[in-house]
Design a protein around this nucleic acid. Structure first.
Length: 469
RNA sequence: CGGGGUGUGGCGCAGUUGGCUAGCGCGCGUCGUUUGGGACGAUGAGGCCGGAGGUUCGAGUCCUCUCACCCCGACCA
């Protein structure tokens, strides 16, 4: 791996062994691609880092697509402090009950013990709504729509590669509205944005719906979610959007004067998508050979490798080819065996590989190989640029279609609980229309590790049951 | 905090009822042969066997204490 490929560092948590052990469901090749390193250089390690080649660029690609849509929705970006005075966090009762076990707390700073402890944000509702309280006076101040790109800390006991890490990067949006309906519509609109990102950009087909009461965000009135199916049949909560009702408004006194002169609480939403999506990406598309990235977010779309006796003539031709292709390319003319080069880029998920050797030069062509299906095609030198563009688009479509088919075939309608349990054990999503009360839900979770993923939109109260990450 | 395990080169491990100079694989360095799907040969560097104390002619191995890490459970999903 070349140094410039290491452009992503993410605090995982716990020891190297923990994160490695807990990530056994990850494709088995991941340790060849993603390095897990001890965080501390000296002494026993309490933490580890995930180091993924091009990982930074992948996150940046997701981020820029999402950020464009967020700002299109009229939302302003801001940065709030990372430390939250403990007193603020505890204002909303359900919220603090949901989060207190997993917060990291700063007790000492500036060389002395702090009078009021500072919580490292697990999410920023509290510190942001403290500001909302000061910013909102009149209905003219509404709606207030803000977003921040940030890192947050949740001290979970069981970390998992990308899916559950002690620190993670995300975007969290927070809005305040004059009416309950407006807030609810907005929460749903942002979920639709996430769905678009998942499907159109990451090529991951999802089910959208509402969470059950027990799976709801701590402090929310309603939680909306998108749930894709991973290759092993498990679900992944990919992104959520919450209708917070007036719960936080009441706790933080976020009120406004309405046109009629009355004082009313605002109605709020919050919504987020995190680096967990990279985990979802890996588990959705990758195969035994390594990472498979949808072309739209692949930082490196084409790699050109020399094969055969790579003399100066071949290297020169490869360089010219590399310069002529508009898509991001990398040329690799190292004098190592072709197999070694092929595997290196397959593992990293580079969508297209162009092979060029003496025979190709003689024939005036190159070989283009697609990462997802391994198909090879010989293409005349003059057609390379065009073919690359076409093939990248085709691959994006293929990956989405594949994900779509998996989800479509993976959902099984079940009449009884026994039927549903059996289906889920076989790696399916069970769609059921019998009622699942909170007692039944707890039972399913305890006995079978099955959860209600969501009540899909427009499906008349039917529930999706599955195992999940 | 309960129950169970593990500490030996960078990583992964072996090392028997105590025994002679502590090994193997991967990785790394050098040289050569290779190069159309993860090559091979030669050679080299790299270790107070987690720590302290004890038993013994002799401890990686046995005993005591201690430290650290990990797994299962509780959190999260």
């Amino acid at each position: 791996m070349k140094a410039n490929e290491f452009n992503y560092l993410l605090r995982a948590t716990a020891g190297k062994k923990t994160i490695t052990e807990r990530s056994k469901d990850f494709p088995k090749w991941y340790q060849d691609v993603i390095e897990v390193a001890d965080l501390a250089e000296h002494g026993p390690s309490k933490g580890s880092m995930i180091i993924m080649p091009y990982g930074y660029a992948i996150w940046e690609a997701i981020k820029s697509e999402l950020d464009a849509r967020i700002s299109e929705a009229g939302v302003a970006n801001m940065y709030f402090p990372m430390f939250i005075p403990e007193g603020l966090l505890t204002k909303e009762k359900n919220h603090i009950e949901g989060f207190s076990p997993e917060v990291a707390v700063v007790t000492h700073a500036g060389g002395k013990e702090l009078e009021e402890k500072l919580v490292v944000r697990p999410t920023s509702e509290t510190i942001i709504y403290d500001s909302f309280n000061r910013w909102i006076q009149s209905y003219r101040d509404l709606p207030l729509l803000i977003n921040q790109w940030a890192n947050v800390v949740r001290w979970e006991m069981r970390p998992r590669m990308f899916l559950r890490t002690t620190e993670f990067l995300w975007q969290e949006g927070h809005t305040a509205h004059a009416t309950e309906k407006e807030a609810d519509d907005f929460a749903k609109a942002m979920l639709a944005v996430y769905k678009e990102i998942a499907q159109d950009i990451l090529a991951i087909s999802v089910i959208d719906g509402e969470k059950s009461e027990s799976e709801r965000f701590a402090g929310a009135s309603r939680t909306y979610t998108i749930e894709p199916m991973m290759q092993d049949g498990k679900a992944l909560q990919f992104a959520t959007s919450h209708n917070l009702g007036d719960n936080f408004a009441k706790a933080f006194d976020v009120n406004y004067s309405a046109e009629d002169g009355s004082i009313k609480p605002v109605w709020q939403t919050s919504w987020g998508l995190s680096t967990r999506s990279i985990g979802g990406l890996i588990m959705s598309h990758s195969d035994d050979k390594g990472l498979v990235l949808p072309p739209k977010i692949a930082p490196l779309k084409v790699v050109i490798t020399t094969v055969g006796a790579s003399d100066d003539k071949v290297k020169k031709a490869a360089q010219e080819l590399s310069d002529s292709i508009e898509e991001t390319t990398l040329m690799d003319d190292r004098d190592i065996s072709p197999g070694e080069k092929f595997y290196a880029y397959e593992k990293r998920g580079v969508p297209l590989r162009i092979e060029i050797g003496p025979r190709d030069i003689e024939a005036g062509q190159v070989v283009i190989v697609s990462r997802d299906n391994g198909e090879k095609q010989s293409v005349a030198l003059s057609d390379v640029a065009k073919t690359v563009t076409q093939e990248l688009e085709a691959m994006q479509k293929r990956l989405y279609t594949q994900s779509q088919e998996r989800l479509k075939n993976g959902v099984v309608d079940c009449k009884t609980e026994a039927e549903a349990v059996a289906a889920v054990e076989k790696g399916k999503f069970a769609r059921v229309d019998f009622k699942i009360d909170s007692k039944k839900e707890a039972q399913l979770k305890k006995n079978h590790a099955i959860t209600v993923r969501c009540y899909p939109f427009g499906q008349d109260g039917k529930a999706i049951l599955a195992k999940a990450y």
